[in-house]
Design a binder for these strands. Structure first.
Lengths: 217, 217
DNA sequence: GTTTGTATCAAACGTTTGTTTGAATGTCAA
DNA sequence: TTGACATTCAAACAAACGTTTGATACAAAC
């Protein structure tokens, strides 16, 4: 091996360009030539390093998407630990901030939610990996944390649906940036992003509040 | 012209298969051969009737997606008119029902929101059409209706963000069916769909409730 | 019967696609 | 220096792609 240690430059550059292009256009709409051209390497490099195009796509999720998702989760936990972690406000606010103002750059956040949205609309082999490794455990963690701080006891399914509602909003405000900007007339910048975090937090908090609840069911 | 009146069978069949396939896989991932094969017609029919593949995609939005969106909106208005239309409950409940239990079949609803999600993540020429003709006016209508029934006065931007929050949830629960079913362990059937309508309605209503609101800003 | 216009068809067009090949280059141990 | 291995490269491969073509069928108009 030439350079086993440190980062293998070509392989890493391919993964970088591949992730960006797959997120922007989707798997089928991106050609191997486009990827290798952006990564400034030879066409055959993809097949040499990853076998084929599909394996490259899966590797993007394994070595890029999943670690990034972990970073976001870690940021959520830290943000929560820093606050008074016994209130629903703290949990929801930490969640919104982790996903809209967390450790990722705006570009990274866009790519991240674009890839996730793609997998949710038409799951590939990558979805199983993502669901098991990231989503399932994180939603469980959220349910536990919220369950321990919410005043009323909630059945598990209801708690999960609440989390989905919040998460749907978070995802939506990330992947539908263009549409939201277009329809509000506001440019997507730091100020508007802050506005969105506030919106998600306030809306979700009220949505979670089960004070005035006495369902008939 | 052979059969000007009635429906032009081949052309309509192409539009049908095209919409289904574009919704499922996206523009680039669907070949013209796949479409014409599903429509049981000759390969050249797409170019004869629509000029090229891209024009066919746009025509799917003009002649299929937009009319269907109008039907959903009409269903919302009727459902609202049938209820006591002076309460926020009525508006939100009518909205959720129109988009999850409205005039569309489950398949139609899935295709519809899949196509919309695609245009929101990576807008094509179709997006301008959709935004101007459908989204912009409908969001305005929602803002007006909600504005007239909500107890407190809301600034326009805040109202729009609230609507986006609700709409994000609606879209999410439609396009992320697979993920939601997988993570809740529930099959997506009529009963679960009812559960989702209830969830969206309750969550949104609380989210909208501005009773206990006294922001500092 | 002839003409005209619409629609469908099999076949072929030139590109682009993902993948393979074999030579060339560089690196390190023997 | 030699041999073995990892990596890069230009070139080529067959298959799939969107699109075009010219022939054919069929109806209505003259």
């Amino acid at each position: 091996m030439a350079k086993e240690n440190k980062e293998d430059l070509t392989k890493e550059r391919i993964l970088d360009s591949a992730e960006t292009l797959f997120a922007q256009k989707g798997f089928r709409a991106v050609s191997v030539r486009e990827i290798t051209s952006a990564a400034r390497c030879n066409l055959a490099a993809v097949n040499y390093h990853f076998g084929n195009k599909e394996s490259l796509y899966l590797e993007v999720f394994r070595s890029r998407w999943v670690p990034r998702a972990r970073r976001v989760q870690e940021s959520f936990r830290k943000s929560l630990a820093a606050q008074d972690s016994t209130s629903p406000e703290a949990v929801v606010s930490a969640l919104a901030k982790a996903f809209l103002e967390g450790p990722l750059s705006d570009e990274e956040r866009l790519r991240h939610s674009q890839l996730m949205t793609r997998e949710m609309t038409q799951p590939t082999k990558a979805f199983e990996h993502v669901a098991e490794q990231i989503m399932q455990p994180f939603f469980q963690e959220l349910a536990d944390k919220l369950g321990s701080v919410l005043p009323n006891e909630l059945e598990e399914e209801k708690m999960l649906l609440n989390i989905f509602s919040i998460f749907g909003m978070v995802l939506y405000f990330n992947f539908a940036r263009v549409a939201v900007s277009r329809l509000t007339g506001e440019k997507y910048n730091a100020a508007f992003r802050d506005r969105l975090v506030k919106q998600i937090t306030e809306f979700s908090l009220k949505g979670l509040n089960v004070n005035d609840e006495e369902e008939l069911q």
